[in-house]
Amino acid sequence: MPTPPAPAVRPPAADPTTTGATRPRRDTRGTAARIRAAARRLFLEKGYEGTSMDAVAAAAPVSKRTLYQHFPGKADLFGAVIDEAWSHFTRAPLIPSEATGDARAVLRAYVARLTEHWARPDVIPLLRLVIAEAPRFPELSQAYFAAGKEPAVKGLAAYLAALLAEGRLPAGLDPQLMAAQFLGAIKEPLFWPRVLGVPVAFDATEAVERAIDGILGKA
């Protein structure tokens, strides 16, 4: 009998702890946060496939009814865990939307916030989990991309587009491609060694300055 397809993982559309157009009930007891914390521990210990909703309910601890009131399924719960891991980076005003001030200082500050994000204890372990389980559950990488990587690149691209519009970068460049290449120039020497558990072989300041030079030039 064929195995049914896994449900799509997606960032939470309406977390009961927030307010919105439908004004869902407030989570005054911190139940959703407790569930996410328990789920994160279990996902990292047992993997996505090895974590059941029953185990999350027991670890939280909450009733299964309460668990499903907050998160209708494991896919939603994993999306919420990923969204929370990225929220410390994506929810903050990371980079201006207008081309004001010293662009080099703006990009340095952006990278500083990004490296602070990498250092959070759950960020790299969750990425390793997504990479390990993606062949069986490709929707996990889709959730990771949608919750954090995509908005991070979009924000940087919007700033670079503003610099282009002000004539501060050469005309005709693609801001989205520039943003992706800039992040690649940062992450290849400084981030991926951490993911792989090997020493970083480059000076961080020099790597950042060279990456900024690639965008702004050496002037």
Rank of each mutant, 00 (worst) to 15 (best):
K187Y: 13
A207C: 10
Y144A: 15
M178A: 15
A204C: 06
P175V: 04
E206C: 13
A201G: 11
L163G: 01
G172A: 11
L173K: 13
Y144I: 12
E166N: 15
P151N: 03
L196C: 12
E166F: 11
F202L: 11
P189M: 00
A165Q: 14
A158R: 03
P199C: 05
A152L: 05
A204D: 11
V198S: 10
E166M: 07
D203L: 08
P175S: 06
A143I: 05
E206V: 12
A207S: 13
G197Q: 10
V198T: 02
E206R: 14
A152F: 01
V153P: 06
F182Q: 00
K187Q: 15
V208K: 08
K187P: 05
G184L: 07
G172Q: 08
L160I: 06
A207I: 04
G155T: 11
G172R: 09
A201T: 06
L177K: 09
L183F: 10
A201F: 04
A162R: 03
P193L: 01
V200L: 10
V198C: 07
G148K: 01
G167L: 08
L190D: 04
A157Q: 00
Y159W: 09
F191S: 05
E150N: 12
M178V: 07
V153Q: 12
P170S: 14
L177P: 01
R168L: 13
P199A: 02
G172Y: 12
A180V: 12
Q181P: 05
D203C: 09
V153M: 09
K187M: 08
F182G: 00
P199L: 06
A165H: 07
V195E: 05
A158W: 00
A161N: 04
M178D: 09
L169Q: 02
F182L: 01
I186C: 05
A165G: 14
L164W: 08
L156E: 00
P189Y: 00
P199M: 05
P189C: 01
Q181C: 15
G167P: 15
A157W: 04
E206S: 10
R168M: 02
A165E: 14
A152R: 06
V195W: 02
A204V: 15
L177Q: 07
R168N: 06
V153C: 11
V198L: 10
A201Q: 14
L177A: 12
P170T: 11
A146W: 06
P170Y: 14
L177E: 03
L190A: 09
R168E: 05
P170H: 15
L160F: 11
G197C: 09
W192M: 03
L183D: 12
V153I: 15
A162V: 00
P175E: 07
A146Y: 04
